[in-house]
């Protein structure tokens, strides 16, 4: 079974982003970029399925600028077999991403698509669910455990009250949550090997998918900041403040 893993190039999670002074967006000039952490978990999950003999091929796909090739190389260094880059310099919203991924899935015919539950830039948490909808497939979101069976998968999901286990028919879309696995660091030999793995490049506009944004971004602002309060020196003082000043006890 082939596993398709969509990966997104995003600002590295360690970078403290800055809003542009004219409120036109977030300043991304010369900022360190990396693979979206949730997508890294997806790649790890797919590679583990291959190592366990349950998947035959892991194909990474990214939609974005030419530089997203670096992101695909990260996935290849972790163990993906080959990659597809759908190039575009436009902002592509989750719905358009899902439509492009559907095109890729129609050609590649994977048995499973594993995708991060959200990207840490726009925090939308939509792509996997939308892709499942467009394909007419089952979805298992926020996965903390994936067990493959015959033409089906049991997926344990992180939900509000704890955990829920569901069974989905394959092919299906699974979105990954934090506790699914701890992604490996790519070894140097694997990083070198990844440079020789094939990346097929296509232009998004050639796929015949309408990618025009549906949302107009009017403004991007700094969040309201909270002022630091005071330091108290003892438990007694803390309780006194909470009772008399804050009135919350």
């Amino acid at each position: 079974m082939k596993v398709l893993v969509p990966v997104k190039r995003v600002v590295d999670f360690n970078v403290k982003i800055r809003v542009k002074p004219d409120n036109s967006g977030v300043d991304l000039a010369n900022v360190k970029m990396a693979i979206n952490p949730f997508d890294e978990i997806s790649v790890e999950a797919a590679v583990r399925l291959k190592e366990a003999g349950q998947a035959t091929e892991v194909v990474a796909v990214s939609i974005g600028p030419a530089k997203a090739e670096e992101t695909l190389r990260s996935a290849l260094a972790m163990g993906a077999d080959r990659a597809i880059l759908i190039e575009t310099d436009d902002t592509v919203e989750p719905l358009a991403v899902a439509k492009i991924l559907k095109c890729v899935a129609d050609t590649e015919k994977p048995g499973l698509i594993i995708v991060g539950k959200q990207a840490i830039d726009d925090d939308s948490n939509q792509t996997g669910q939308m892709l499942a909808a467009l394909l007419g497939w089952a979805q298992a979101t926020f996965a903390s455990k994936i067990e493959l069976g015959d033409q089906k998968a049991a997926v344990t999901r992180e939900v509000d009250g704890g955990l829920q286990t569901i069974e989905v028919k394959l092919p299906a879309v699974v979105t990954t949550d934090l506790r699914l696995n701890e992604p490996r660091y790519a070894s140097l030999p694997n990083i070198m090997k990844a440079k020789k793995k094939p990346i097929e490049k296509r232009i998004a506009a050639d796929l015949g998918v309408a990618t025009a944004p549906r949302l107009k971004v009017l403004k991007t602002e700094e969040p309201a900041t909270r002022k630091a309060g005071i330091k108290v020196t003892s438990v007694g003082e803390l309780i006194e403040k909470l009772r008399s000043e804050a009135g919350v006890l």
């Binding site: 939308m130 909808a133 999901r157 949302l215």
Partner: peptide
């Protein structure tokens, strides 16, 4: 935006061919 709604609402949006505004 509960776990349940985060699960289902994007599926609804895609089936209706509209964007979702999250959270």
């Amino acid at each position: 935006a509960t776990a349940s709604a985060k699960n289902v609402m994007p599926r609804v949006a895609a089936l209706l061919d509209v964007a979702q505004v999250s959270e």
